[in-house]
Design a protein around this nucleic acid. Structure first.
Lengths: 162, 162
DNA sequence: TATTGTTATACTCTATAACTATA
DNA sequence: TATAGTTATAGAGTATAACAATA
């Protein structure tokens, strides 16, 4: 979506014809709509930036959680990431197949197992994290002195609707 | 995801066992991560709130754009919403099948056609909009006096990565 | 040649329900 | 009975590429 500072209520289209601009209309003033647009644009940019990585950008949060909580179980990971346990199975399988994570016996409960990053996983995560930091720096620059306000607001929105 | 004001670096899990809390770790300070969490939580809440509507919550933006731009073409709608034209086809087909939108000949270009809401479409959109307004009010309350700052930041993030 | 809309296809993310092994 | 993890399945949401009709 393109923004037009002279006409903040419209979006320029790519072909300048009779449909050159579209009124965002009532959408323009919804916080939730702009939250969606901003997240979508940010995630697409992160995907573009990290496209050459061996780790998929959508897995960054999961990998980070494992890296920061070695020995975490799939269930704990499911709860921490807010995703159903069934969505983790294929991801963990592929990560294990690519030697990014290791599974080990969980003493005291044979139903479960623990997860941790391999040396390769740590290395690849570090590469992806570099892109993530650069990406986040771009958002920080936009926010400027309002960075902490933005972070606090986003945390409170998440907590509110949880 | 649950927040714990006493331990902002952790997430409580639902079963209080030895895995009670998980360190968010490096994730904690990424603006992009919290943008994603906030959007996800907000959208889920909007879906919950509008679950009894005949219009799907994900279609609100599209319907609003048609309502505010009667006579818009699918291509213009595609550009305005930032989605590929091919993703619009099934949505517009279902909306037309449910008598929410009307398609009319576009004079001067037989390849395309114009879109507008039917009376029923306007009515159902109004119901959905009521939920959207209530939902947005919740976010406004969180933001308080920072509402305008937040809106401006989100717009600039969208524009930056566009 | 370029553009509009459609179709075919596929990938990501996500969820629910049923299943198994274990607790 | 309840829980951990897996499997099967499904549904949004999105994208690319190829196509027919038209410009």
């Amino acid at each position: 979506m393109r923004s037009d500072t002279n006409r903040p209520d419209t979006v320029a289209t790519q072909a300048p014809d009779q449909h050159e601009s579209v009124r965002l209309g009532s959408l323009e003033h919804y916080l939730a709509f702009h939250l969606r647009m901003a997240q979508c644009a940010s995630f697409k940019a992160f995907k573009r930036r990290s496209g050459d990585c061996s780790l998929k950008p959508g897995w960054f949060a999961l990998l980070s959680l494992i890296g920061d909580n070695p020995g975490i179980t799939p269930m704990a990971l499911s709860r921490a990431s807010g995703r159903d346990k069934s969505t983790l199975t294929p991801v963990l399988r592929e990560l294990a197949a690519n030697c990014m994570i290791e599974r080990q016996e969980l003493k005291g409960d044979k139903r479960s197992y623990t997860l941790s990053l391999t040396a390769k996983g740590k290395c690849e995560l570090a590469v992806l994290a570099t892109h993530a930091i650069q990406h986040d720096r771009e958002i920080e620059e936009i926010a400027g002195s309002d960075k902490d306000v933005l972070l606090d607001l986003l945390r409170r929105i998440t907590a509110q609707f949880d």
